[in-house]
Each structure stands twice: as C-alpha cells, then as structure tokens.
Computed example of a mutant assay.
Amino acid sequence: MTGKPVLGVDDNEDLRSARVDPRGMRELLAAQTECTFSFITEKGWPAGVVMSFLYHNDTFWLTAAADRAHARAAARDPRVTLVISNAGTALPGRRMLAVRGWATVHTDRATKDWFYPAFAGRLAPDDPASFARLLDSENRVVIEVEPVRVAVSHDSTKMAGDGRGGRL
C-alpha cells in the first residue's frame, strides 16, 4: 500500500467521513417505515423492539398497546433511541441512524384522530381505512419521539468499493 489509506478498501477504523448527511437522512426516512425502538426496562436493562414509524414534521410517531413494555417504559422514562437502517428498502449501500429523543405517550382523541389515518396511509396504502380502524382501540397509545440528536450514523455509499474491502 502506498499513499493515504482508502476508507472501505484499506481502512475501516475512522468512519467519521461515512456519516449520514442531511440528504441521506431525508432519503432514509422517506424510504424506511421500521425502526428499533430502544428503551430502559424497569430493572434498568436496555431493551429494544422493532416498530413501524411515521416521520412527520421532523418528529417520529409510533403506536403500541398501552400495556406493552416499551409503551410503559416510554411513559416512565422518556429517554429513547430509534435505530433506523435501510434494510429492506431499495436504497443502495448500508445506511443507519441512531436517533436519541424524548418520548411522549399520547392517549388523547385529537392525536389519534390525525395519527391513525396518516400512519395507515403510509403503512397500508392499499386499504388505509381498514388498518386505521384496526389500530383505533381503547388500549392503544401513540408515542411521539422528538429527536434530540443523531447519536450515530453510517452511510457505506461514502466509502470506496463496497465498504468491506472490495475494490471499485
């Protein structure tokens, strides 16, 4: 090897230049509908669950049955992290964001009335009314996550080759 190491070919240690930029973040959030919702259990352990989300007005919106561990955890301790990757989307490369945020658990009718149709339209575009009707139950909550900061991100399309040692 001569000269400066090439990220993704000769070096895979300092990935600061392979962070997701604002354009990449917009692409990822437009393409993906699933995330890992990370929270702290009552016994202090980190835990996570895969959930669908709606990204609306720079805020993440999710829903769950009120008695689920992650819904109870968000009500008890609003510090959460959402991990979003491009797995299962048509986006090239490997992209991910870990977004720290403050969760608010909503039970009010006004939030449910706008959220269920918007969420169902994004997740079940062929029959959003049926999905919205299914979601609208007495024991369901809407979880709003207001982002604090992107804690970690990665975009392998910013790396030479395939980002795993291959050459162009």
Rank of each mutant, 00 (worst) to 15 (best):
L15K: 13
L123F: 08
G101S: 11
V105L: 14
G88F: 06
H106T: 10
R23T: 09
T41N: 00
D127T: 10
F37S: 00
T2G: 14
K43M: 13
F119W: 13
A75P: 01
R79E: 02
L28W: 05
G165C: 11
T63R: 00
V50F: 05
I143H: 03
F37A: 04
I84H: 03
A30Q: 10
L29V: 11
A98G: 11
Y116T: 03
L62H: 02
A129G: 05
E138L: 06
P147Q: 06
M1T: 07
R149F: 08
P46I: 09
V145A: 05
R23A: 13
L62D: 01
E144N: 04
G24Q: 09
E27G: 01
A75G: 05
E146D: 09
K158W: 04
T59S: 13
F115C: 04
E138G: 03
P147V: 08
H154K: 10
P78C: 07
L135H: 06
I84A: 04
E146Y: 04
F131I: 01
G24R: 03
V141E: 04
P78E: 08
V105K: 11
S17C: 12
D113R: 09
P128F: 14
D10N: 11
W102D: 06
T63E: 02
M1G: 12
I40G: 00
T59G: 09
R68T: 15
D58K: 15
M25V: 12
A66Q: 13
D77G: 08
E144L: 05
F39Q: 01
G121M: 07
L7F: 00
Y55D: 10
G8M: 00
K43R: 15
L135Q: 12
S130R: 15
R100A: 13
S137N: 13
R140K: 09
P147M: 10
R72A: 10
R109Q: 10
S17D: 14
P147I: 07
Y116K: 08
P147R: 03
A132N: 07
L91K: 08
K112R: 14
R95M: 12
A118C: 11
V9N: 03
T36K: 02
V148T: 15
A103V: 02
E42S: 15
V152P: 00
G163P: 04
R122F: 07
S137Q: 15
V49N: 05
A151Y: 09
S153M: 06
A103G: 07
L15G: 10
T107H: 08
L97N: 02
A124Y: 11
L28M: 13
F131V: 06
D113F: 02
R133C: 03
L135P: 02
E42F: 13
P46W: 06
Y116F: 15
T107W: 04
V145I: 14
A69W: 02
L15E: 08
V83I: 09
G48V: 01
L82M: 14
H106G: 12
G93K: 03
D155N: 04
F131M: 11
L168V: 10
I40M: 05
V20C: 10
W114N: 00
P22M: 09
L134Q: 13
P78S: 10
G93E: 04
E42N: 14
D11A: 14
S153T: 05
L15Q: 11
E13A: 11
